[in-house]
Nucleic acid binder design. Structure first.
Lengths: 355, 355
DNA sequence: AGCATTTGTGTAAACGTTTACATTATACAC
DNA sequence: GTGTATAATGTAAACGTTTACACAAATGCT
C-alpha cells in the first residue's frame, strides 16, 4: 500500500494529458488491450475489461481525438459550404443536416461563401488537407473552386450537393434538390391563372445557377402563355432585403408597372413587400407577390406570403444521408440527382390580376 | 538523366497521400529541412528553399493537417455553442466571430443547444478531447454543462462567454455582452415615458439567465414608476414565432389589457405583432410593441419595430478577439466582463399611451 | 495425454509531423 | 593557413493512437 515515493501518478496531479499509457500501467495491461477495450470490447475478457474500466475512471482518461483522427485518417467532421447561415432557408436545411450528422457522431464545420467566391481557397485547403471527411455543398462555386473539388490529384473527398443545381463541371456528384425550373414555372403559372399578364421577376446574384434555373422556369411559363417579358421586368439585386428593396424601387418607378412580382426567394419577397407597401400600393389588390422557399416568416408577413415550399429540412437530411453513405461505406460516387417534391403554398399576397 | 527504372515517384501515380518524405527525397534533403522550409523559412538557405519549393510543387504536396494538429496539439478550430443559428441575432454575432476567426486562420465548429441542454454531452466531449482550441459560449448551460466546463480535472480549454449573463458557476470566465438589465429598463422607461401604465412582458425559456435579466430590468422600471405588474402580464412562451403568438393570445384574451408589450427579443416581437394585427388591433394606436436585438427584419416590419439594438457583430468580434488572446498568447483567464453599449432605436411600433 | 482450435494479450511498427540536439559547412578573423 | 563563431542541415525521438503479428493460455477434441 505504501507505494513508491516521488513519482506517483495518483490523481489529478500532473497537468500533461493522461494517455492510454497511464491507464495501461494502472490496470497492469498493455496499451493495446486498453485500446481494444475501447474499440472492440468483445475481444477482451470480461475480467480485464473491468480492470481497465476502473483504471480509466480512476485516471480520468479520455482518448485524444487528435491522435485518433491522425491515426485513423478520419476526423468525424463534415464541412458544410453555404452562401449564408443567416438565410432562414439554409437554417432549415442545416437543421436536417445537423440532426443526421449528430445522430451519427459527426460534427459540422461551417463555411460561408457570403455570396462571393472568397472561400474557394478555404475549401481547397480543406479538400487537400482533409480536415473533414466529406463536404456538403449548398452553394454554387467559382470555376476554380469546382476545379479543386473535382481534381483527381488529391484523393477526392466525398461531396454531396444540396439545393443548388449542379454546374457542368460538377456533373457526376450526387445531389439533392427540388426541380427549380418546374417550381418556378408553377409559381408563374399560378400568377397567370389569376389573370396577371405583366409579371416581373426579382432575383439575386446571377452567379448562382439556382436562380438562373428559376428564371428559366419563369420565362418558360410566360412563353407558354404567350405573354411578353419586358427587359426591365427582370431585375437583379443583391440577395438581401436591401437588395430587394432597391430592385423593387426600380421596378415601380415607371408607368406600365407589372401587376405581379415573382421573387426568387422569400427573403427578397420580404423587402419587396415592404417597399411596395411604403410606396402606397396595396397587396394583393394593386400588385401580387409570390416568393420561394417558404421560410418560417412567410406566414406571418403582412399579408401572408404565397410561395413555393421547399422541404428544406428533408433536403438536409437526405444530403447528409447520402454523404455519410460515401464517407462510411466508401460507396463509390453515384452521381444520381435526387429530386424532392416542392409545393405551392397559397396565402394572401396573391390575388386576381385586374384584367 | 535516364534515371532509375521501376520505382519512380514521378507524377500523380500513387493514390496514397504524398508526404513530407516524398518531397524530401525529391529535393534530396532531410525531412527536417522540408518542415523548416514550411515553418521557419528564414532558417534555411535560399538555394535549398528553392529546391524544396520545386519539389513541393512537383509532388503536389500539402501538409497533413491531421498530423500537424496531432503533433502541435492545436487544431486551429474554435467551437461555438449557441442556442440556434436560426436566430438572426446570433447570425449577426456569428458574422463578427467568423470574420475574426478566419482572418486568424481558425475554422468554426458550431454546436446548437436548441434551447435545451442536450448538447451538454457534446460539449463535455469536446472539452475533454480537445477537438477545438477554445470555446465561444453564447448559450446558457445546464449545471452539468458548466461543471464539466470549469472542471479542473482536464486542463481547461479557454472559454469566452458572449451575450449571455454568466451564471454564478461560470463566474471567472471572461465575457462580452450588453447590460441587459439596464437595456430592458431603458425600453420599459421609454414606454412609461410615452404614457403607458399597463405594460406586459413576453419572454422565452426561463432557463436563460439573459431573459431573466431583462425581466429584472422591466420590473425595476415599473417599480421605479410605481406601476403595478399584474401576474398575467408576464408571460412565457417558447422562444419562437409560434411561441410568441400563443403568448400574445393569452395576453389579449382578457379585459383590462395592457397597452404596451415588451418582447424579450425581436423574433418574438414578430409573432406578437402578427397576432395583434390579426386580432384586429392597431399598432401603435391600440397597443405599442417594443422588441430587443434589432435584427435585420426589425426595420421592415409593419410597423417598423422600436427595439433595443445590440451591437451584435461587434460582440462577436470582441468575443473572438479575447478568446484568441487566451488561446494563442496563453494569457491566463482574466474574468473581466466587457460591457458594450446598447441603443434604443425608436421606430413606429410604439406610440403614446392613451391615458 | 496429446493435439488443434479458439481466445486473450503483448510487442512493436506505423501514421506524418515537429524539434532538440548533433553534425557539418560556411564565413570571418588573424 | 589555423581557429573560432555562425549558419545550414541531418538524425532521431517524440506525440497518442491503432493494428498486424506473434505468442500464451484456455478450451475442445480425440
Amino acid at each position: 500500500m505504501s507505494q513508491s515515493i516521488s513519482n506517483q501518478e495518483s490523481e489529478t496531479e500532473n497537468p500533461g494529458q493522461v494517455s492510454i499509457k497511464d491507464v495501461a500501467r494502472l490496470a497492469d495491461v498493455s496499451i493495446a488491450t486498453v485500446s481494444r477495450c475501447l474499440n472492440h470490447p468483445d475481444r477482451v475478457r470480461e475480467n480485464t475489461r473491468a480492470r481497465v474500466q476502473q483504471a480509466i475512471l480512476k485516471t480520468g482518461y479520455s482518448p485524444n481525438t487528435l491522435a485518433q483522427s491522425f491515426r485513423r485518417g478520419k476526423t468525424q467532421v463534415i464541412m458544410v459550404v453555404l452562401p449564408s447561415i443567416g438565410d432562414p432557408f439554409f437554417t432549415e436545411v442545416m437543421k436536417g443536416i445537423r440532426s443526421v450528422a449528430s445522430s451519427r457522431g459527426y460534427s459540422l464545420l461551417i463555411s460561408e461563401t457570403q455570396f462571393n467566391t472568397m472561400t474557394d481557397d478555404e475549401i481547397g485547403a480543406m479538400v487537400v488537407s482533409r480536415q473533414a471527411d466529406g463536404i456538403v455543398l449548398l452553394a454554387s462555386m467559382s470555376p476554380f473552386g469546382t476545379e479543386v473539388l473535382s481534381s483527381k490529384s488529391h484523393q477526392a473527398l466525398p461531396i454531396v450537393i444540396g439545393c443548388e443545381n449542379i454546374t457542368p463541371d460538377l456533373a457526376g456528384f450526387p445531389s439533392v434538390r427540388i426541380d427549380n425550373v418546374a417550381a418556378a414555372r408553377e409559381a408563374t403559372d399560378y400568377l397567370i391563372a389569376l389573370g396577371h399578364r405583366k409579371i416581373a421577376f426579382i432575383h439575386g446574384q446571377m452567379s448562382s445557377l439556382l436562380t438562373r434555373e428559376r428564371e428559366r422556369g419563369y420565362r418558360a411559363s410566360m412563353r407558354a402563355a404567350d405573354l411578353p417579358i419586358e427587359d426591365r421586368w427582370v431585375v437583379e439585386g443583391k440577395l438581401s432585403i436591401q437588395g430587394a428593396i432597391q430592385a423593387t424601387r426600380k421596378l415601380l418607378n415607371h408607368d406600365h408597372n407589372p401587376t405581379a412580382i415573382f421573387c426568387a426567394n422569400d427573403e427578397m419577397a420580404m423587402g419587396c413587400i415592404h417597399e411596395i407597401k411604403s410606396s402606397g400600393l396595396k397587396i394583393p389588390k394593386d400588385i401580387s407577390i409570390i416568393g420561394f422557399d417558404d421560410i418560417r416568416y412567410a406566414e406571418i408577413l403582412d399579408p401572408p406570403l404565397t410561395t413555393i415550399r421547399q422541404p428544406a429540412e428533408k433536403i438536409g437530411e437526405r444530403v447528409m444521408h447520402r454523404l455519410l453513405l460515401e464517407v462510411e461505406a466508401g460507396r463509390s460516387r453515384n452521381g444520381q440527382v435526387e429530386i424532392v417534391p416542392h409545393e405551392l403554398i397559397i396565402r394572401e399576397s396573391t390575388g386576381p390580376g385586374n384584367v
